[in-house]
Design a protein around this nucleic acid. Structure first.
Lengths: 278, 278
DNA sequence: CGTTAGTTTGATGGTCCTCAAGCACTGTGG
DNA sequence: CCACAGTGCTTGAGGACCATCAAACTAACG
């Protein structure tokens, strides 16, 4: 049997695993009191912006962070073609997922930052074909397929939240495609920097003022479909235009409004002002 | 990613929506007896290439095709921003999904052909923000969220197959992104035509010889991130190079091998020689 | 028979790539 | 301490690729 299908995802079980509502009020597994807000992981923080999570859901979510792992910058975590054994929840650092072409050029498809899942699809469906490279040294929690399915069947609402976040990531890939296809270099860069800012703000490490960003101009080039040299010129233009500065690992917005304008940035698909699920 | 896990509808409600199994044997809307193999829908045909489906699974699958709908070419089925009420399984014709930008340009994200799902994510997760436009008059089956969830809970293997197909579509979007970012116009066009060929072959309306294709050069332009004029020139080059002809709604491959070469086309991620699930 | 949609070709120019080179900074080893 | 290499940023010059403008052509259609 093909590896892709070697393990079935028990959808029916998942769906039928609904439990009485009051069960949700019991917390059987976690010892100790409820968590304080400060202890929450970035993922928890991100999901809390969309869904008001219960105590149990919070506990299950935090328990997914058990198996901590570190990866060194620059060494691929997963290589193109290799089938993934586990997914990861990134707790700190930056990762890029990319595809390599025969002629040596690469296209970065997406970046992952704190609170993002990595390899979710590949672990659930065994279909993934890009590489993951940590941009800096990272900390991540390894999540086995069984952990995930277990968590999903315990707390379906949490499942919804996680899948919703994953779906949002895909919307960003589409937006990325549109950007590369139909925006010029300036707008593309502006859009990219704004989107990153929004994502980081969700996990509390960015704002409309700016954020720390360890990416090199080569990363930007590979992500935006430009040459590194042109990236440099574009950044200069944006800087001299008084809109945004990207220097020494830090992005500073000087004129957020105008940047939004030239990027035609629509934050609606990322921004949510409050929990959507009650 | 997997829309399917997610129900915004409470799980309890979902379960209550289940109907007795023998209901499946009744055909309220479509007249006529049970299906013979030759009558199988394109979707069935496509999935059968990946998974050997049981009688019951086939029946459930065909059952999803109850509510037949027609849509006229050129009139959006779903408009950007509007939340979808239903998903569709395309049984004949072509559809494109695209995003419009403020400056009027559009980027086609993907095409759907016979056997493809349309709006799967948007109906399950309520997150979709592109428009769907039939390229020609089409026939489709409307699939309500409840139908889908019901089918999934009955036949989990079928659910896996459908999600796998959806995941494959997403892989194509990623490949599309790579193409726009890192391939020149010739390679982009070659890759696009080859990919379409592979997809159509799966549902039996295309081969390595060629296929019918109702797309205009404007469609190609919007999909590939080029101007229509340049599309025309690229097509001429490929034609004069003796590789492929695209004329009067028909694509004819003259030198498949060389086309694969200049496109750096890797059919592995689409091609499957036989059923994977036994 | 004019209109519209789609295709084709030419001319011109802008965006962005490539090649080339210099600079700043860091770490390494003699 | 200094030579050296490596990484990343910066700037210039020339040219390829592709967009834009303009216009002719075909086919379909009322």
């Amino acid at each position: 049997m093909h590896p892709l299908f070697s393990q079935q995802v028990p959808y029916a079980e998942l769906i039928q695993s609904s439990v009485p509502a009051d069960f949700l009020l019991l917390d059987r597994d976690t010892p100790g009191g409820p968590m304080t807000s400060a202890e929450h992981s970035p993922l928890t923080r991100k999901l809390s912006a969309f869904v008001a999570l219960s105590e149990v859901e919070l506990a299950v979510l935090e328990r997914l962070h058990q198996r901590r792992r570190s990866f060194a910058a620059g060494r691929d975590m997963v290589h193109q073609g290799q089938s993934a054994q586990a997914a990861y929840i990134l707790s700190s650092g930056w990762v890029c997922s990319y595809k390599l072409q025969a002629d040596g050029t690469r296209q970065i498809v997406d970046f992952q930052v704190a609170g993002d899942f990595l390899g979710l699809r590949s672990v659930l469906l065994r279909t993934s074909d890009h590489s993951f490279e940590p941009v800096v040294d990272i900390e991540a929690a390894e999540v086995l397929k069984s952990d995930l399915l277990d968590a999903f069947s315990r707390t379906p609402r949490l499942a919804t939240a996680i899948l919703w976040a994953a779906s949002r990531d895909e919307a960003m890939v589409v937006e990325h495609l549109v950007g590369i296809g139909r925006r010029d270099a300036d707008a593309r860069m502006a859009h990219f920097l704004l989107e990153l800012g929004s994502r980081l703000a969700l996990v509390g490490i960015g704002s409309k003022e700016g954020y720390d960003c360890p990416l090199t101009q080569y990363h930007l080039a590979d992500a935006l479909g430009l040459s590194a040299i042109h990236v440099n010129r574009v950044l200069r233009q944006l800087r001299e235009g008084g809109m945004v500065t990207f220097r020494e690992g830090h992005v500073t917005f000087h004129d957020y409004g105008r940047l939004v304008e030239i990027a035609e940035f629509d934050p609606a698909y990322l921004d949510q002002t409050g929990p959507l699920l009650k």
